[in-house]
Nucleic acid binder design. Structure first.
Lengths: 173, 173
DNA sequence: ATATTTGCAAATTATTTGCATAATT
DNA sequence: AATTATGCAAATAATTTGCAAATAT
């Protein structure tokens, strides 16, 4: 009980597709493709990007279909919304977000460094005790200024942009 | 160095208004009101809500002005965007977000419990060492299912809605 | 006095909806 | 066969932009 929820991507467990079936929704080709795209993507996707990615895989998709399914998948907590600061909404699979993939993001250039060991489990157990919530996951993002930007003359112009996912290294574990 | 950044709201320190001046932007009445609204608000605000709140304080504001200033304040990292799942963007003051005000959010009903001691400082110090980033803050949200919803027959209909900020208790410290 | 910011109106972009057709169970 | 999901087209909502007038420095 408490944390220790089975990770939905793990082998032998139910993936997003099975989840959909369980909830009584139909497993259409477009839904499979949408989920596939999110599964193979490392980072966030906007509705338009989803349509394009599915398109590259050979299936035409109307944007309204993408919107409808993103809304559906969000409601079922299979997708969650990212908090990047641009006018289009961006999403990722909840099961990936929960997989302890966290980012240290540079406020200046947007470079993102991935890290894994966040040590929040103890806090979660503590909270579960106090509140009686059944904890399912967490989202953590740490912000700062990367070494390069600390050097730079601080033009302050380049705020975090959509290419935040462009470059990212990894650290720790 | 590292964390230990001075909190921008603390007495004797520079608040958002001073910050703006420092950056060479003019301190207009509308900017003061917008910031004031964010300062007295506990939670996130959408552009429309900002306009209405300022309006209630007796100053008419065009929505485009709100948008322009939100964008400006975001670029300067005075405001940050929340990741609530609805089509309008919502924001809060970075200096408040950094003030260790975190939420445990119920995935079913949206009830939010506030907590303060997140114990991420150690992680931040660790990351700062490894990556040479100058850490400025973090955002953490934990999700789960609240006691009430664990009882309930799980209609699954009510996904997290904008009234997430409606009810919230506090815990810990 | 000058440069910046505002309000207004209009443009653009994002998201949602209605309905007939197609696809899944 | 019954229902649910899709595509298309059109509607609505969110955000951005151009420009003249107003305001802060």
């Amino acid at each position: 009980m408490g944390r220790g929820f089975k990770n939905l991507l793990d082998e032998g467990n139910e993936g997003p597709c099975q989840l959909l079936k369980q909830k009584g929704m139909r497993l259409t080709r477009q839904r499979k493709e949408i989920i596939a795209v999110f599964l193979e993507q490392d980072g966030y996707l906007s509705p338009g990007e989803v349509r394009d990615a599915v398109s590259r895989r050979g299936l035409y998709l109307d944007l309204s279909t993408v919107y409808r399914n993103i809304k559906l998948l969000s409601k079922e907590h299979i997708l969650i919304r990212a908090d990047v600061d641009d006018p289009v909404a961006r999403y990722e699979l909840a099961c990936k977000a929960r997989k302890h993939r966290h980012y240290l993001v540079c406020e200046c250039c947007g470079r993102a460094v991935e890290f894994h060991d966040c040590g929040i489990e103890a806090l979660e157990d503590n909270l579960a005790q106090k509140t009686r919530f059944r904890i399912s996951g967490h989202r953590l993002q740490i912000t700062g200024i990367c070494p390069e930007c600390q050097e730079a003359p601080s033009t302050s112009t380049g705020a975090m942009s959509p290419d935040m996912k462009a470059s990212h290294e990894e650290v720790g574990e």
